[in-house]
Amino acid sequence: MNDNDRDTLLAAAVALRAEGHREEARQRLLALCSAFPDDATIAYQTAWAHDVLGLEAEAVPFYERALAAPGLTEEDRRGALLGLGSTYRVLGQYGKAVGTLREGAEEFPGDGALRTFLAMALFNTGEHHEAMRLLLELLASGSTDPSVREYHEAITYYAQDLRATV
């Protein structure tokens, strides 16, 4: 199989997943993984195909392979970090979830989804203050609600320490 075949087959599998033919997409991606075991993009797409089917434990090694190999686009790397971190959290591997999502949030500081999922994982590890800080900062910086915007400064201040008094 050459690179043109790889690109065509990968695009077809991703389209199947997007169209709701998730199991067929997963099967095709597994075949592509066998043919291209060092391809980070195929590994990422295979992880995603498992994740959307609720096969989180099976998704993990594909996410790990994708992140370990070179070749992911920036957007796919962001998605793989989010996917792996979220999957670890769903599987109850909270420490790994925090580590992965923290890495993602540091690498992609403007990504609100990474920070949101990190906050959920932090909650699961009992780090409630940091979880609330992340969510309050995200709310203060991104809300379009006029009443939240009105209290932006106060929300940002209290995000640093919810125990603070004036």
Rank of each mutant, 00 (worst) to 15 (best):
1 M>Q: 10
4 N>A: 10
9 L>F: 08
11 A>S: 14
12 A>E: 15
13 A>K: 00
15 A>F: 11
15 A>H: 11
19 E>Y: 05
20 G>P: 11
22 R>Q: 14
24 E>A: 04
25 A>L: 04
26 R>Q: 14
27 Q>S: 11
27 Q>F: 06
28 R>D: 13
29 L>H: 01
31 A>I: 01
31 A>P: 00
31 A>V: 07
33 C>T: 15
34 S>G: 15
38 D>A: 15
41 T>K: 10
46 T>D: 05
46 T>Y: 01
47 A>Q: 07
48 W>T: 09
49 A>T: 12
49 A>C: 11
52 V>N: 05
52 V>H: 02
55 L>F: 04
59 A>T: 04
59 A>D: 01
61 P>H: 05
62 F>W: 06
63 Y>W: 09
65 R>W: 03
65 R>Y: 03
65 R>G: 00
65 R>L: 13
67 L>R: 04
69 A>H: 07
71 G>F: 05
72 L>N: 02
73 T>M: 08
73 T>I: 09
73 T>P: 12
76 D>C: 02
77 R>K: 13
80 A>E: 09
81 L>A: 08
82 L>Q: 07
82 L>C: 07
83 G>N: 05
84 L>K: 02
87 T>A: 09
89 R>P: 00
89 R>M: 07
89 R>D: 12
90 V>G: 01
92 G>V: 07
94 Y>T: 13
94 Y>D: 12
97 A>M: 07
100 T>D: 10
100 T>S: 13
102 R>T: 14
102 R>D: 15
110 G>Y: 07
110 G>W: 03
111 D>E: 12
111 D>F: 08
112 G>F: 05
114 L>Q: 03
116 T>S: 03
117 F>V: 01
120 M>P: 00
121 A>K: 06
121 A>M: 08
122 L>D: 07
122 L>C: 04
123 F>Y: 10
125 T>W: 14
129 H>T: 13
131 A>I: 07
132 M>S: 08
133 R>G: 03
133 R>A: 05
136 L>F: 11
137 E>N: 15
137 E>Q: 13
138 L>I: 04
141 S>N: 13
142 G>W: 03
142 G>L: 03
143 S>L: 12
144 T>M: 09
145 D>P: 01
146 P>K: 08
146 P>R: 04
146 P>N: 11
147 S>Y: 04
147 S>M: 06
147 S>A: 05
147 S>G: 00
148 V>I: 15
149 R>Y: 02
149 R>P: 01
149 R>D: 02
153 E>P: 00
155 I>S: 00
155 I>P: 06
156 T>C: 01
156 T>D: 06
158 Y>L: 15
159 A>I: 08
160 Q>M: 10
160 Q>L: 14
162 L>E: 13
163 R>P: 01
163 R>G: 08
163 R>F: 15
163 R>S: 15
164 A>Q: 13
